[in-house]
Computed example of a mutant assay.
Amino acid sequence: MATLYRLLTAEDDSAFCHKVSDALAKGWVLHGSPTFAWDQNANAMRCAQAVTKDIAAAYDPAMKLGAQ
């Protein structure tokens, strides 16, 4: 059994909320609070949310985490 970790990032808009909601619907669990930072180069607010998921398989660095 392995615990997987992902850090979801995107601009602060509804697409980010959908990205997190999609991960939750696929069994990922929120890990900590979201983080926000101003991206001066893009002139936009950026968001990040960590998520984790326990799986029955052994961890393999070649895994596509979003497909788990």
Rank of each mutant, 00 (worst) to 15 (best):
T52E: 03
T3R: 14
N43E: 09
S33W: 07
V29G: 05
H31Y: 07
M63H: 14
D54W: 02
L7E: 00
M1C: 10
C17D: 01
C47F: 02
T9E: 02
L7K: 01
A48T: 00
T52A: 03
A62M: 15
D39C: 10
D54C: 11
A23S: 12
Q68F: 15
V20E: 01
S33T: 10
A48I: 00
T9R: 07
Q68H: 15
A57Y: 10
F16M: 02
D12M: 02
A25W: 01
Y5L: 04
L65K: 11
A37M: 09
D54G: 09
L4H: 01
A2D: 04
A42N: 12
M63G: 10
I55K: 13
M63F: 15
L24R: 04
M45A: 06
A57E: 14
L4P: 11
Q49A: 01
A44E: 09
A57W: 11
A56Y: 07
E11Y: 05
C47A: 10
L4R: 09
P34W: 00
A44R: 12
S33Q: 07
C17M: 02
A58W: 08
I55C: 13
L24Y: 02
W28V: 08
A44T: 13
N41K: 10
W38D: 05
V51A: 07
R46S: 06
D13A: 07
T52M: 13
S33H: 04
S14Q: 06
H31K: 12
K64M: 14
H31E: 09
M45F: 09
A42W: 03
M1V: 08
E11Q: 01
G32V: 01
A67V: 14
M1P: 15
N43I: 03
I55Q: 13
D39T: 03
K53A: 09
E11F: 03
W28T: 09
I55T: 13
K64C: 15
A23L: 09
A23Y: 07
V51L: 13
V51P: 09
L7A: 03
L65T: 06
N41P: 05
E11P: 10
T52D: 06
A58R: 13
A42F: 06
M1W: 06
S33P: 05
A50L: 06
C17H: 10
A10H: 05
Y59G: 13
M63E: 14
A67W: 14
D60N: 14
L65Q: 09
D39P: 04
S21Y: 04
A10G: 14
N41Y: 07
Y5N: 09
A62P: 13
L7H: 00
C17F: 09
L24H: 02
G27S: 05
T9F: 02
F16H: 00
Q40K: 11
K19N: 02
P61M: 03
A62L: 14
G32R: 01
L8N: 00
S21N: 08
K19Q: 12
A23V: 05
T35E: 05
Q40V: 13
D39G: 07
G27T: 02
L24P: 04
K53T: 11
T9I: 05
A23Q: 04
R6Y: 02
S21F: 02
R46V: 12
L7S: 00
L7Y: 00
A37D: 08
G32K: 00
T3C: 05
A62H: 15
S33G: 12
P61A: 07
V29N: 07
Q49D: 01
G66Q: 11
A56S: 15
L30A: 03
I55M: 08
D22H: 10
T9A: 05
S14D: 03
F36R: 08
A2Y: 06
